[in-house]
Write a protein that binds this DNA or RNA. Structure first.
Lengths: 168, 168
DNA sequence: TATTGTTATACTCTATAACTATA
DNA sequence: TATAGTTATAGAGTATAACAATA
């Protein structure tokens, strides 16, 4: 977690935080609260992300997953190990290419993913609780424009290296 | 860095990312770009944050700093060591309480901080380049409301533990 | 020779615990 | 006894490198 202080204002007392600072501050808060909400399920955001991606792309393999998340294949091994040990997903050797592990959610995995989705919706409601429906739509629109201009892929949180990568 | 996938939409193809997800995504991007921009100066966001806080509060001590940033005193030691070795700030034992180290920027520290401030302004311009001035003001207003409702202290990036802490 | 997955290892960031000096 | 700072140590979260199996 990167801590920082709003740096954009002059040396005199800061008149207001910059947009960039507010984005980093509120975004870190959002990510942290989401992680806290996942804790009772024994999940971390990366584990939940893997569940979600595998649900959306059945028979996806670990290479695809590493590319999509912008992380190292070795870490994917650890994440998939964890989820497999809990019985939330299964590995199956592909019959076409025996190097490949096909990943699929188990029924238990689908149940847990449904809980995660509910948590995410509650999280979103909490975060925007202070806004009117109209303000929420405005915020969504503005953030979407900033994300687009920044080259961020819809739906995927940026790691340090996956910026500008085309959608898998 | 926490990676995750938008979890709020149903199992069917996601109609759009949630506000919470967009905030985390764009916020992580903003923090990452800021860190990249600081690299040529040999600084990290936490180091820059210490410079800024010491500039705003001359003769501040390390305890104050740890409280304000919501981090452990032992980490503050390492950050201050680093900045002191580069000649950007100085430690002076307080004459009133010999346990206390009073921190002050050197003239070199003030010069570097001025560069950091310029970088931060350029960073903010880049991030909001896709928005009109009016949209930028809207975004600022909306983010401020979300930050306020979330109990975030103006000007201080949240660590894992300093939420809801009153401003030092 | 290239690719998928795996293991072994290492590095960064940050905290906790134990300690020293001072109050 | 309590507090400011320091040192030593440890843990989480990742990456890189070397390797095995398969293509």
């Amino acid at each position: 977690m990167v801590y920082y202080i709003d740096m954009a204002s002059s040396d005199a007392s800061p008149p207001r935080d910059s947009c960039a600072f507010l984005l980093a501050q509120v975004g870190a808060h959002a990510a942290q609260r989401f992680a806290e909400r996942l804790e009772p399920l024994g999940l971390t955001p990366p584990l939940a992300g893997v569940l979600r991606l595998v649900a959306q792309n059945p028979a996806m393999n670990q290479s695809n997953l590493a590319d999509r998340l912008g992380t190292s294949p070795s870490w994917i091994v650890a994440l998939v190990d964890d989820l497999e040990e809990r019985g939330l997903l299964s590995r199956t050797r592909s019959s076409e290419d025996r190097r490949v592990q096909e990943l699929r959610l188990t029924s238990g995995g689908r149940e847990v993913l449904a809980e995660v989705a509910e948590i995410a919706r509650a999280h979103d409601r909490e975060l925007t609780a202070a806004l009117t429906r109209d303000q929420e739509r405005q915020l969504h629109q503005l953030l979407s424009e900033v994300a687009l201009a920044g080259g961020l892929s819809p739906g995927v949180h940026p790691g340090y290296r996956n910026l500008g990568r085309p959608e898998g």
